[in-house]
Amino acid sequence: MTTLDLITREDLQKFKAELFAELRSILPATADTAASRKWLRSAEVRKILNISPGTLQNLRNSGQLRFSKVGSMTYYKSEDITTLLEDNVS
């Protein structure tokens, strides 16, 4: 004869709380910020520089900001963003 184990709603809620607690303890150690990553996406660069998509396009077109395109995604080296900022200090 086999026993039947029932999972209650409370069991699932407890499991969920434990799972999220475990994930929170792991993620801060492995999460990377935009500033620490080597390659950034367009949206991240626009946010860092506080510029519009058109301004970012102008920086690419004028050669002021190098980029790499993979498929439809455009990536920028974080060191190039830093150089751009340092070169434009007044």
Rank of each mutant, 00 (worst) to 15 (best):
M1Q: 10
M1Y: 08
T2D: 12
T2H: 09
T2Y: 09
T3F: 10
T3G: 09
T3D: 13
T3C: 08
L4I: 14
D5Q: 11
D5M: 11
D5A: 08
L6T: 11
L6W: 10
I7E: 08
I7M: 08
T8S: 14
T8Q: 03
E10D: 14
E10C: 00
D11K: 02
L12E: 12
Q13P: 00
Q13R: 09
K14A: 13
F15T: 07
F15L: 15
K16P: 00
A17E: 14
A17S: 13
E18A: 10
L19E: 06
L19T: 09
F20I: 12
F20W: 13
F20P: 00
A21Y: 04
A21V: 02
E22N: 07
E22L: 11
E22C: 04
E22I: 08
L23E: 06
L23Y: 06
L23F: 06
R24H: 08
R24I: 03
S25F: 00
S25N: 09
S25W: 01
S25A: 12
S25K: 05
I26Q: 03
P28M: 01
P28V: 00
P28S: 01
T30K: 05
A31Q: 14
D32F: 07
D32A: 12
T33D: 08
T33K: 07
T33A: 04
R37K: 15
K38D: 13
K38R: 14
K38L: 14
W39E: 12
W39K: 09
L40I: 05
R41H: 05
R41P: 01
A43W: 05
A43E: 15
A43S: 15
A43F: 07
A43C: 09
E44P: 01
E44Y: 05
V45Y: 00
V45Q: 01
R46W: 00
K47C: 03
K47L: 10
I48L: 11
L49E: 02
N50R: 09
I51L: 05
I51V: 15
P53K: 06
P53F: 02
P53A: 10
P53I: 03
P53N: 04
G54W: 07
G54S: 14
T55Q: 15
T55G: 07
L56Q: 10
Q57A: 11
Q57P: 02
N58V: 10
L59V: 03
L59N: 02
R60K: 11
R60L: 08
N61R: 12
S62P: 01
G63D: 08
Q64R: 15
Q64I: 06
L65H: 05
L65N: 03
R66H: 09
R66C: 06
R66D: 14
R66Y: 02
R66E: 14
F67E: 04
S68E: 15
S68I: 13
V70N: 11
G71N: 05
M73L: 12
T74N: 04
T74I: 15
T74W: 00
Y75I: 06
Y75A: 01
Y76R: 01
Y76K: 01
K77A: 13
S78D: 01
E79D: 14
D80Y: 03
I81E: 04
I81M: 06
I81W: 02
T82M: 07
T83N: 10
T83L: 13
L84M: 06
L85W: 01
L85E: 10
E86N: 14
D87S: 13
D87I: 03
D87C: 12
N88I: 06
N88W: 07
V89I: 15
V89E: 13
S90D: 10
